[in-house]
Design a protein around this nucleic acid. Structure first.
Lengths: 68, 68
DNA sequence: TTTTAATAAGTATTATATTGCCGAATCATT
DNA sequence: AATGATTCGGCAATATAATACTTATTAAAA
């Protein structure tokens, strides 16, 4: 789970819901600037920020054993 | 996945490996203060910090659909 | 009890995430 | 082409995560 992958997942889900970044920003109470940085993989968000964004998208983080 | 649950998962896995917080700190290159704050659910870590800690423990974050 | 290892927590400093404001770039629609 | 909506990105200010240092607490072992 690197930052680029995470950004793609968020962007794809956002597009599925037909939300603009601005709408997602409003719903999640996270700045649009932060959202597009996350989507581009250029951010290192805190868990709280990431949870707010994922929550609006019906997604969540879980911890699993790493398979290598 | 709230902060308390995350802390418990990390602590349990750390104990399974018989790592002290100090050893986990050294291996992950994350300050011991940060680690015990995370374990107590009193931290809001960045993804990068959390990934470093989880990586040493053989764990990783993934995004899944929220079941409600 | 005394000693030692481990964990918890306060304070201060540094690093960086988050934000707002702004303009530029991209893309679709007319 | 022109208009409008959306996304990208720079810059500065603010909020806060991460760290080092120190002391206290807890727990276990001698």
């Amino acid at each position: 789970m690197n930052f680029e992958q995470l950004g793609h997942i968020i962007r794809e889900r956002r597009n599925e819901l037909s939300y603009s970044q601005e709408v997602l920003s409003d719903k999640s109470d996270v700045a649009i600037k932060t959202i597009h940085s996350i989507e581009l993989g250029k951010a290192n968000p805190s868990l709280k920020t990431l949870d707010k964004v994922l929550g609006v998208l019906g997604l969540e983080l879980i911890v699993v054993s790493k398979k290598d």
